[in-house]
């Protein structure tokens, strides 16, 4: 008798994923129905989905998304540009690397949210301070990634730049930056993620607009379902951006 053929692997993987989501959802619903937490602390999945739907059709969400997007965008643009310039400048010179590399690593180590009081004092409690935080958050991963890539760049590129008598600007823009493009993308991926986190946390702490502010408003009104819906939406956006950047990174690595 012929043995029945096993299901393809991808089917089993998909089934396992669906099963896991069902178990997690069922567990969540069990907690929502139980008396383990006070009423409203664990909203039903249907309530979360309803809040998500309402939020997606509300102008409030989009105006807050615009504010957060503006803060993150400014931070990434400024932080990314400064990070690339720093990384190439310090990485290309062994002296500068040994002088400033340790300082860069030291300042990169701390969570950027702790700089929020400084940002507020310098830039106020509005959009600018969160953009400043986003700038710092994006700057360090980009600078360190580009620094490392420039340092370990194939020596032949340096020789080529020297032999062609390129000016520092020409060498940086035509050789070093293109050569370190995968590292720039890797640094930006990390930097954008950290920028989003820092901006959101800054908004939760002190803000009048933005997704983080909207989140804290939900928390303040004890509308936990709305709060979770906003958190899920933020996760989805962050993961989507990361996935897009990973694709670009793969293409750059494959050249």
């Amino acid at each position: 008798m012929k043995k029945p053929s096993a299901a393809p692997v991808w089917v089993n993987v998909a089934l396992l994923r669906v099963l896991s989501l069902c178990v997690i959802t069922a567990f969540w619903e069990f907690l929502a129905f139980s008396d383990l937490y006070f009423a409203g602390a664990i909203p039903h999945v249907s309530a979360i989905l309803w809040e998500l739907l309402q939020a997606l059709f509300s102008a409030n969400l989009y105006s807050n998304l615009m504010v957060t997007g503006q803060e993150v965008g400014t931070g990434v643009l400024l932080g990314g540009t400064l990070g690339i310039v720093t990384g190439v400048t310090v990485g290309v010179s062994p002296f500068l690397y040994r002088a400033y590399g340790p300082l860069l690593y030291m300042f990169a180590a701390a969570p950027k949210i702790v700089y929020l009081p400084i940002m507020i004092m310098l830039l106020g409690s509005g959009v600018a301070s969160k953009s400043g935080l986003g700038t710092l958050a994006c700057y360090f991963p980009v600078a360190l990634s580009v620094l490392s890539a420039t340092l370990h760049m194939k020596p032949i590129y340096r020789h080529l730049a020297l032999s062609m008598r390129l000016s520092a600007y020409q060498a940086a823009t035509k050789v070093y930056i293109p050569a370190t493009a995968p590292a720039i993308m890797n640094g930006l991926k990390l930097g954008i993620g950290l920028s989003i986190v820092s901006v959101l946390l800054g908004e939760t702490k002190l803000s009048r607009a933005g997704i983080g502010f909207q989140l804290m408003q939900s928390y303040g009104r004890f509308n936990i379902a709305e709060m979770i819906a906003l958190i899920l939406l933020t996760f989805f956006i962050a993961i989507a951006i990361n996935a897009l950047l990973s694709r670009i990174e793969l293409r750059l690595n494959g050249r």
Partner: peptide, 21 residues
């Protein structure tokens, strides 16, 4: 195969904003 990409995705997710929850 089922969960590796979930963990990799979580690594890039802003988990810390779960703190109000």
């Amino acid at each position: 195969r089922a969960y590796y990409s979930w963990f990799a995705g979580l690594a890039s997710a802003p988990l810390v904003i779960l703190y109000p929850l």
